[in-house]
Design a protein around this nucleic acid. Structure first.
Length: 422
DNA sequence: TCTGGGGTCCTAGGACCC
DNA sequence: TCTGGGGTCCTAGGACCC
């Protein structure tokens, strides 16, 4: 179109593509008798709800019981985990046929910058239409796309486009499009921020734009206030990040109501540590900081972190540090005798291959002295286990002290869908 | 008798160093 | 002896997103 690349760059050329009600749509694709019906993926909690179910007020994250009350005919289904992964990847691959500049946000969502693709494939709006048609024809799934000059606006546009739609915001119409919308459509405005803004009389993005940055900073804190005013004027030129590595890896398990006893929490921590440490070893990214979270029966939760002098990636080392931290939490909260959730997170991840470290550090029983010989033996055992799992599947071997499937929690296959690349 | 599980970023206070 | 400031790392908690 234009000879000058700079002119193209001010056009609306960022796409945000978002598969609609993704897990629910996959189930309706695989089970044709469920099409047109209110369905939910999950059980104890709704992980995804079809649009037919959303019409009754069913939302993801909602307890299953409440969802059933809102929608008596609701059908719970799910379980095609490998199909979720395959179809999510396939949809992103369609996008990748039009541009290499893709930032994948999750299994069902991605940004794409097509500013360099226009000579080959036409205007961004045409590219978006072709992506939608191909995902529908080749995969059988509905996908909504927003097109705008910035990521944030493209994201809002795709939300407005749902379900199964396309919204293009051209450069001249940005603020007119934005300012009538409610503040909660902005990335970063959740229940707490929405309530604070409402108390100040701000419910639309336009009203937020009319407020001074300093008043928003006082109301919401420096970073949030500054960010939201920038977003309200569409002054947020963040670039597509094609290569993103996670900064932490974690795992958690809801327990129902269990006594706060070592015999209860130790096997759970062992299992969580096993899952996390296996990922760290697979990507050769040992961690230096270990954080645990203990949630009590009343849903109050307490976190405790420890940063080690050297990185670790042995399952037993991670489990031991986590156990000591949980002991500390319980000792400091003697009134709490019931726990409802345990979580471990590993952060401060190294870039170096752990195999090239001198020897893995292990926090000894006195909490200070490195037990390097023990650590090396533990790591060798882990690597042998990793190799067996690589060949025969994750369930083929286990630590005797771990608690596989300890509660009626989500299957590990499902958990893996949400893991980000380390 | 049931409020999941994987992440990111920000804030505030304290320790420590220069 | 008193006084001051900036930078970095760490910890605990909170809000948010998918």
């Amino acid at each position: 179109m234009e000879q000058n690349g700079n002119i193209a760059s001010v056009d609306a050329s960022i796409l945000h593509a978002d598969l609609d009600a993704f897990y629910a749509s996959v189930e309706q694709l695989l089970q044709p008798d469920l099409r047109g019906k209110p369905i939910a993926v999950g059980g104890g909690v709704v992980l995804a709800a079809s649009y037919e179910a959303r019409a009754f007020g069913v939302r993801s994250g909602m307890p299953g019981r409440q969802a059933r009350q809102l929608c008596p005919g609701l059908i719970f289904t799910g379980g095609h985990f490998s199909e979720y992964q395959r179809l999510g990847d396939a949809a992103i691959a369609v996008l990748a046929d039009f541009t290499p500049d893709i930032e994948r946000i999750s299994i069902d969502e991605a940004f794409a910058d097509v500013s360099g693709s226009m000579q080959l494939f036409g205007a961004p709006a045409d590219i978006a239409a072709r992506v939608r048609a191909r995902v529908r024809d080749e995969l059988g799934l509905p996908i909504s796309i927003g097109v705008a000059r910035t990521k944030h606006l493209a994201k809002i546009a795709s939300q407005v486009a749902k379900p199964d739609g396309l919204v293009v915001v051209d450069a001249a119409g940005e603020l007119a499009f934005l300012h009538d919308l409610p503040v909660e459509l902005m990335w970063g405005v959740g229940p707490a921020t929405r309530a604070r803004l409402a108390d100040a009389g701000v419910t639309t993005i336009g009203q937020l734009a009319q407020s001074s940055t300093s008043s928003m900073e006082r109301l919401l804190g420096r970073a949030v206030g500054r960010k939201l005013t920038a977003l309200a004027w569409n002054r947020d030129p963040r670039a597509i990040q094609t290569q993103r590595r996670a900064h932490s890896a974690g795992a958690q398990s809801a327990l129902g109501r269990r006594p706060a006893a070592e015999a209860v929490f130790r096997p759970v921590l062992q299992h969580l540590a096993d899952r996390i440490a296996g990922r760290l070893r697979a990507k050769e990214r040992p961690c230096r900081t270990v954080t645990v979270r203990v949630r009590f029966a009343d849903l109050r939760s307490v976190t405790r972190a420890l940063t080690l002098p050297a990185p670790i990636c042995a399952t037993a080392a991670l489990a031991d540090v986590a156990t000591q931290l949980v002991r500390g939490v319980l000792a400091d909260n003697p009134g709490e005798r019931t726990i409802s959730l345990l979580a471990i997170s590993a952060s401060n991840l190294g870039e170096e291959a752990f195999l090239q470290l001198e020897l893995p550090f292990h926090l000894a029983d006195d909490g200070r002295r490195p037990g390097t010989r023990r650590g090396a033996a533990r790591l060798r055992a882990d690597l042998a286990m990793d190799a067996i799992r690589e060949r025969f599947g994750w369930e083929a071997v286990n630590y005797a002290s771990a608690a596989p499937g300890a509660s009626r929690s989500v299957p590990d296959d499902f958990r893996r869908l949400a893991e980000k690349d380390l």
